Simulated assay, not measured.
Amino acid sequence: MALVHRIRCGNAQVVWRQFGQGLPLVLLHGGHGSWMHWIRNIEALSSEHAVWVPDMPGFGESGALGGEPHAADRLERMVGALAAGIKSLLGPAAGFGLAGFSFGGLVAAHLAASLPNVERLALLGCAGHGGPRRQAAEMANWRGDDRGQMLAALRHNLGALMLHDERTIDALAVDLHERMCKATRFHSKALSRRPLLAKALSRFSGPTLLLWGEHDVTAQPVEVAQQFAGEASHRDWCLVPGAGHWVQYERPQEVNTLLLRWFSRP
């Protein structure tokens, strides 16, 4: 059962969910997402951590970020709203772990660069790398009045972008994807495609895990992982076999084990 917190950050009300007890761990969802991007991970992670999961501004149940939707500073305003929420909920000096998925990984990297108390960072299928993608199938337009066509388009898009194994495109995945897409008001695509990750990571010296699914179509995972991990002793990377972009949904047991191990390290 989650405790729900509604935090006012400027003009936006941000909804946070809290699960479990222990060392704090903040999870950030991806674009066209919500806290439910972590639906198959929260139970395992909250067995050892106090897990804090927001709907970022402009997503899910949270209010819009405010300001011009395509303004150049919208990423900075997003990071500022989340930083204010973390300080309010955890306290200004409390150390915590931070994980982000896709666009949420890009946000997490910038958040880690701006706060002094992020102890460990994990980025899953992270956006903002600026490298080539390998998506072969075009996305389908899911907006329309015919519900059957909408669901078919959402299922197609899950296979084109998010999930590799067709068997994992189950009723739950389609239902979650529908709800999250319908509730998305923040424009993240352009930010995700820009090379914004490197600068943020250069400003964070804490332990950083870069994790991709083997078949993630939003990147060339091995090339990008090696590029960003490089020779840096505080960075590590991992490839999850058989998984696509939404790696923590498609291979939850493997990802949960990796994250529990990563965030339990001294």
Rank of each mutant, 00 (worst) to 15 (best):
M1F: 08
M1K: 14
V4Q: 02
R6T: 09
C9T: 13
G10L: 10
Q13M: 10
Q13I: 12
V14P: 00
V15S: 03
V15L: 06
W16V: 04
W16M: 08
R17T: 14
Q18C: 10
G22F: 08
L23Q: 10
V26D: 04
L27I: 01
L28K: 10
H32D: 10
G33L: 03
S34F: 13
W35I: 00
I39Q: 04
I39H: 04
N41Y: 01
E43L: 02
S47K: 11
H49T: 03
A50C: 02
V51N: 00
V51F: 00
V51W: 00
P54C: 12
P54A: 11
D55A: 05
M56Y: 01
P57Q: 08
F59V: 00
S62C: 07
S62Y: 00
L65M: 05
G67L: 05
E68K: 15
A72R: 14
L75T: 00
E76P: 05
M78H: 12
V79G: 01
G80M: 03
K87T: 03
S88A: 15
L89T: 03
L89C: 01
G91K: 08
G91C: 04
G91P: 00
A94S: 10
A94N: 02
G95M: 03
F96L: 05
G97I: 00
A99F: 02
G100T: 02
F101H: 01
S102I: 09
S102V: 08
G104W: 11
G105V: 10
A108Y: 13
A108N: 10
A109T: 02
S114P: 01
S114T: 10
L115T: 05
P116Y: 11
E119G: 04
G125W: 14
C126H: 08
A127L: 03
Q135Y: 13
A136I: 12
E138G: 05
E138T: 12
M139G: 06
A140H: 08
G148A: 11
L154F: 13
L154T: 01
L154W: 06
R155S: 08
G159K: 09
G159H: 08
A160G: 02
M162W: 13
T168G: 13
A171R: 11
L172D: 12
V174L: 07
D175R: 12
L176K: 03
L176H: 02
M180P: 01
C181L: 06
K182T: 11
F186R: 15
H187P: 03
S188Y: 05
A190W: 09
L191T: 02
R194C: 15
P195L: 05
P195Y: 10
L197F: 09
K199M: 05
R203D: 12
W212K: 07
H215T: 13
H215E: 07
V217F: 07
V217M: 14
Q220G: 00
P221F: 08
V222R: 11
V222L: 06
V224A: 14
F228N: 01
F228Q: 01
E231K: 07
E231F: 07
S233L: 07
W237L: 14
C238W: 06
V240F: 07
A243R: 03
H245G: 00
Q248R: 13
Q248L: 10
Q248V: 07
Y249A: 11
R251S: 12
Q253K: 02
Q253G: 11
Q253C: 14
E254M: 14
N256T: 07
L258Y: 11
R261M: 15
S264P: 04
